[in-house]
Amino acid sequence: MGYFLFFLLAALTVGAVLAMIISKNQAYNALFLILAFACLGGIFALLEAPFIAVVQIIIYAGAIMVLFIFVIMMINVRYGIPAEKKKWTIYLSIVLAVVLIIELILSIKGAFTLPVSTAIIKAGPTDLGRLLFTKYLYPFEITSILIIAALVGAIVLIKKKEKK
C-alpha cells in the first residue's frame, strides 16, 4: 500500500512539474505547481512527518501560491520571455541542470554509504511547540516585533493619500 501510494504521488509530482514547464498559460503554471506541492506534502506524510506535510501544503500550496497567482493576475503577462532572451535562459538552465545532476549523484552516493540510523527522531507539532516556547522563546518573541514592523511599514506606504 505504502509503495503504491509513494509511486502514485511521485508520478503525480513529476507529471505536475512537467505540465507546469510545458504549459504556456501562466495561471495554469501556478496551478500545476500547487498540485506538485500538494503531492510532495503527501510524500512527506508517507514518511511519517505529518507536521512537515501539513506545513508544506499550508505554506507553499496555500500562502505562497496565492501570492503568485495574485501577482500573475495583477501584472497580466500574456506572452512569455522574448525569443532572444529565451536563448540565454536555456543556456543558463542547462548549466544549472548539470550542477544539480552532479549534486544529486553525489548525495545519492553518500546516502548509500552512510549507516542507516535506527533511532528515528519523531518530531511532531508538540515537540516543535515545546521548543518554540522554551529554547527558542526569545527568537519567537522577536518575530512578533518583526511582524509589527512589517505591518506598520506596509500600512504607511499604502495609506490613502490626503487631498489638498
Binding site: 526569545y138 527568537p139 522577536i142 518575530t143 516585533i145 518583526l146 514592523a149 512589517a150 506598520v152 511599514g153 506596509a154 504607511v156 506606504l157 493619500k161
Partner: peptide, 24 residues
Amino acid sequence: LLIIFLGLEVLSICSYALAGLKRK
C-alpha cells in the same frame, strides 16, 4: 547568529518602509 539575523530583519524591514516615506 539566529537572533542577530532576526534583529537585522527588524531593522531592515523598518528601513525599507522609511526609505519610501516620501510617497509623492
